[in-house]
Amino acid sequence: MMNRIRHLVGYLIYRVFTSWAAVWIISATGIFYWLGFRTRTPEADYFVLVIGLFGAVGTFFSVMMMSSRANEAQSYPLFVRLESRVEYLTAVLLAGFLLTLTLQLLLAVVVLIRNAPELLLGDLLQIPPIWLAVNLLLGVLALHASDFVAHGWSRIWLFGLLATLIFLGESYSSAANWLSERLLTLSYQPTQTQAAQEFAVNLRRTADWLSATQESWLQQVARSIFWPFEAIISGSLRRFFLPGEALAPAVLVLLATILFLIAADVFSGKDLMLVEE
């Protein structure tokens, strides 16, 4: 199995580097360097976060690119030779991940040589788990976003859920306040019938409940999903991680694993209608 995955990774990278996509990838890396590091001598936190951002965004797009190559009809004879479709899924993720990691390391080396940020050994040791975990998670999210893996409404459900969690985590309080006020105003409209008065009382109760549950457990759960990102950013800015924050990369890897298992499940049950040009 590992042998097949290795050859698939090589094949996908070969496909990308024998197409115009290679020019785009190298140009995008150059542009990123020019925008992010052309003048200043970066500080350690800037170096870690900006190159980390390059890795995250780069992995997302690389995995999308690999997925689109894998989604072409050339892959039919390859699929027939696999013991499980998950082998191809793993290869797509690995190919995008390795490609971006190589570019990320190249970019980091160039920045280290040309811009010479002040990095201590401790700063350097903190970098690998941060970059690798974030890249991995974004790579798996890219799998879900691609036509290769998506099945029916799968990506709508997943990204809809993520959007809802972001909303709950960030804007729940203000939205609950706004809704509570609207319900309260509505409940004080003049009413004629007994039923309408009962309905107004219920509205008032709902409005009270909404204003009282601004820091609900739901909001805490939603926030905890995105907590690792906050922890990584604050730890990087501070240049050291608190004991709790140090777990953040591991939590991201756990999230990536869960999302990969979901992707594998979706992918195993879908029809492979690959793109025929």
Binding site: T18, E72, Y76
Partner: peptide
């Protein structure tokens, strides 16, 4: 199983 699809697509540069 060995499979030959109806419409054959290959990586043209190989």
């Amino acid at each position: 199983i060995g499979y030959k699809p109806e419409r054959l697509h290959f990586p043209d540069r190989m």
